[in-house]
């Protein structure tokens, strides 16, 4: 099959997968879950003085929301969302019908991976939106006016780095979800992965461990983006993201090859 034909099949399969997302929790969850840390932090900041954190009110708010997201809710979302996306086929025994079409199996699996990545990105756009809403809400409701600007570029850059750092995690969970039906395994591994990640808190390995990489990148990037340490650590962040991205790509190729070689049950 030529590369052009393969690519044509891929886009057509992706279009079909987008259609299958209609009215699903796989679509709703990534858009709604980012509201949770924003609401928690909004009510917390409404009662607390931001000065106690020492960073200033806006960076403290951003850090708090992204920290909750990167260290816990993001990995849980990745596991749940991947199970929901793959569950569309598992629950309806759709694999056999898909593989009985002329689509190459690699196309079918890569399309699912891309759907998961697109939803993951959408969840981070929703996270950035919920942060902006939280800060806007605090500025409007707090007596001190919640001083300090929120630069959209910095916010989006910060959230994008955390999003990119989660791609390895997402790839692992999507591979598990494509192979095994149900939430149990995926959520169990996510919780186990997060728990084991605590042991790596002081280690450089936490930058590359799938379940702690988003939080590690969040810690590295926050002072850079908000100008607390200049730009000296930018190379470090880029190296971490490069290695995480490469690991995600290798995992993706290996999992696609493995899944494509299996008989359909």
């Amino acid at each position: 099959m030529s590369a052009r034909a393969w690519l044509g099949s891929f886009w057509r399969c992706l279009a079909a997968d987008v259609l299958k997302l209609r009215r699903t929790r796989a679509l709703a969850l990534p858009l709604l879950l980012p509201l949770a840390p924003a609401l928690v932090v909004f009510f917390y900041m409404l009662q607390q003085g931001p000065e106690s954190a020492g960073l200033g009110p806006v960076p403290t708010t951003v850090e708090a929301i992204v920290a909750i997201w990167a260290s816990f809710l993001g990995p849980i979302l990745a596991a749940a969302m991947c199970s929901l996306v793959a569950g569309i086929e598992h629950a309806n025994r759709g694999w056999k019908e898909l593989f009985a079409t002329s689509l190459p199996r690699s196309v079918v699996f890569l399309s699912k991976f891309l759907i998961a990545v697109l939803l993951w990105m959408a969840s981070h756009v929703a996270l950035a939106g919920s942060i902006a809403l939280t800060i806007g809400g605090l500025k409007a409701t707090r007596g001190d006016g919640f001083p300090g600007p929120l630069e959209p570029g910095i916010l989006l850059g910060f959230v994008s780095l955390v999003c990119f750092a989660g791609l390895l995690l997402l790839t692992v969970h999507m591979a598990l979800a494509l192979r095994w039906q149900g939430f149990t395994l995926n959520l169990g591994i996510a919780l186990g992965g997060l728990f084991c990640g605590f042991a790596l808190t002081e280690s450089i390995a936490r930058n590359f461990y799938p379940w702690s990489a988003p939080a590690a990148v969040q810690n590295l990037a926050l002072p850079l983006l908000f100008g607390f340490k200049g730009r000296a650590g930018a190379g470090h962040v880029a190296a971490v993201l490069g290695i995480d991205g490469l690991a995600a790509a290798v995992t993706l190729v290996a999992c696609t090859a493995w899944l494509s070689s299996r008989d359909v049950t």
Binding site: R12, A15, A16, L19, K20, R22, R23, T24, N92, T101
Partner: peptide
């Protein structure tokens, strides 16, 4: 796919 209409179910293959 139970969450899709009958027409959307056929349209999945139309897109493929």
């Amino acid at each position: 796919y139970p969450h899709l209409t009958g027409r959307e179910n056929v349209s999945v293959l139309r897109r493929i």
